[in-house]
Amino acid sequence: MTSLVSLRGIQKTYDGKQLVVKNLDLEVSEGEFLTLLGPSGSGKTTVLMMLAGFETPTTGEIVIAGQHMTRLPPQKRGIGMVFQNYALFPNMSVAENLAFPLEVRKLPAAELRDRVEKSLAMVRLTPFADRRPSQLSGGQQQRVALARALIFEPRLVLMDEPLGALDKNLREQMQYEIKQIHARLGVTVVYVTHDQSEALTMSDRVAVFNDGIIQQICPPKELYERPGNSFVAGFIGENNRLQGVVRKIIDDDCLVEIAPGVTVRARKVGVHATAEPTTLSIRPERVKISPQAGEVDTVIAGEVESVLYHGDHIRAHLRGLGPTPFVVKLPNTNGAAATLVAGASVSIGWASRDCLALDLMEA
């Protein structure tokens, strides 16, 4: 695919000492939905602000659609922007908020009216054209902000935690709507969030940031199924961690000793040699209770500490498999869940393909 955005050798410091973004090289393809994901202070929002022109890189260059933008002010970049706080003009109606970017660009009145009408229809707000932002719900205000960012037909739209202020149900609804609009228009989106579930749901690719560096960038499924290091594994979804030492390497797998006489087979991701310490990562939903012979590659005994009912699934916390509780997640329809009572001894197991040997991380 054709690259629309290039960030080359980007570094950013605010105090001349500490780098908040370090040696960043990033390409964003035309029509892509790329999410920058990471904890607070990881550098993701700073990258978005540099793309928008609100911050200037300390070193490096930004190229958008073949044009060097590094020193260009925000108003000359032709980028749509959606913020968490909506940033709507309170003294203007919905239609007037939408018309404003077109008036700045001096579009003919007939074309302006046509675009406003189409934008209102796109976000299903035609009946609310004459209302002020204060007369709208949070979700309606966010749809206005989205329509305003798209109305002048930018090739690139930046979104900074746009759904952070919405409740869970509305947030999920807006995720769907934003993806539908993206699919229809084919606009390029760079989206910032700290919500890993949101990133997995919405993105073509996800760039996971930590300490000013992209730890891994890839499609959501690959990120979840094959995290590149222990930080990504811990930040994306939920995982159990067991620490051990590599005793043998077998092609793409390795044998890891997690306790005297207890060895586990795992996929080799972040280890390179025998006698190397490693952190094993196993997703709770990949663990089986009382597995049948041949169903799994590893079987370990544990004791049920507690059982939590979550409606569609049941979560059991087991002890005896490390310093922290080991979590097993089972569908509510699973008959094995009936055996999970506090104090019970159980056997659990998993396939070696679902156990990743990563770089060492404190459990």
Rank of each mutant, 00 (worst) to 15 (best):
Arg171Lys: 14
Ala149Leu: 02
Gln216Leu: 13
Asp195Lys: 02
Val245Met: 13
Glu225Asp: 15
Thr201Pro: 06
Arg184Asp: 14
Arg247Ser: 09
Thr188Asp: 06
Ala233Val: 11
Val206Ala: 12
Val264Arg: 04
Pro227Val: 00
Asp251Ser: 14
Leu158Ala: 04
Asp130Asn: 13
Gln173Ala: 14
Asp160Leu: 02
Gly244Phe: 01
Ile151Asp: 12
His194Met: 11
Ser197Leu: 10
Met202Gln: 14
Glu172Asn: 14
Ala259His: 03
Gly186Pro: 00
Gly138His: 01
Arg143Thr: 13
Asp252His: 10
Gly237Trp: 01
Gln141His: 05
Leu150Val: 09
Glu177Ser: 08
Pro227Ser: 04
Cys254Asn: 06
Ile213Asn: 14
Lys221Thr: 11
Gly212Glu: 13
Pro133Ser: 10
Leu166Asn: 00
Thr188Leu: 01
Glu257Phe: 01
His182Thr: 04
Glu257Ser: 02
Asn240Ala: 03
Ile258Val: 08
Lys179Ala: 15
Lys168Leu: 15
Pro162Ser: 10
Ala259Gly: 08
Phe231Lys: 01
Arg205Tyr: 05
Leu185Ile: 14
Arg143His: 12
Glu153Phe: 03
Glu238Phe: 13
Gly186Ile: 06
Asn239Lys: 09
Gln175Tyr: 11
Thr188Ala: 07
Pro154Arg: 10
Arg265Glu: 12
Asp252Asn: 12
Arg267Ser: 09
Leu223Trp: 05
Ile250Phe: 00
Ser230Val: 04
Asn239Thr: 15
Asp251Pro: 00
Cys218Val: 06
Ile236Val: 10
Leu158Gly: 10
Ile178Ser: 13
Ser137Tyr: 00
Cys254Lys: 05
His194Asn: 11
Val262Glu: 06
Ser134Glu: 10
Val232Pro: 09
Asp211Arg: 10
Gln140Trp: 01
Gln180Ser: 11
Val157Glu: 06
Arg143Ile: 07
Ile214Asn: 04
Tyr224Asp: 12
Arg247Asn: 07
Ile178His: 11
Val192Met: 02
Ile249Met: 03
Ile213Cys: 12
Ala207Met: 07
Cys218Thr: 15
Val262His: 08
Tyr176Met: 15
Arg131Gln: 06
Val206Asn: 10
Asp211His: 13
Val262Ile: 15
Val144Thr: 08
Ala145Arg: 13
Ile258Cys: 03
Asp167Phe: 05
Arg241Ile: 08
Thr193Trp: 02
Cys254Leu: 03
Arg226Glu: 13
Leu146Pro: 04
Glu172Gln: 15
Leu200Tyr: 03
Gly164Asp: 05
Leu146Ala: 13
Gln243Phe: 04
Phe152Asn: 13
Glu222Ala: 15
Glu153Leu: 11
Lys248His: 09
Gly228Lys: 13
Arg171Asp: 09
Pro260Asn: 14
Thr201Lys: 12
Ser134Met: 10
His182Gln: 05
Gly228Trp: 08
Ala266Ile: 02
Ile250Met: 12
Arg241Cys: 06
Leu185Tyr: 03
Cys218Tyr: 05
Val246Glu: 06
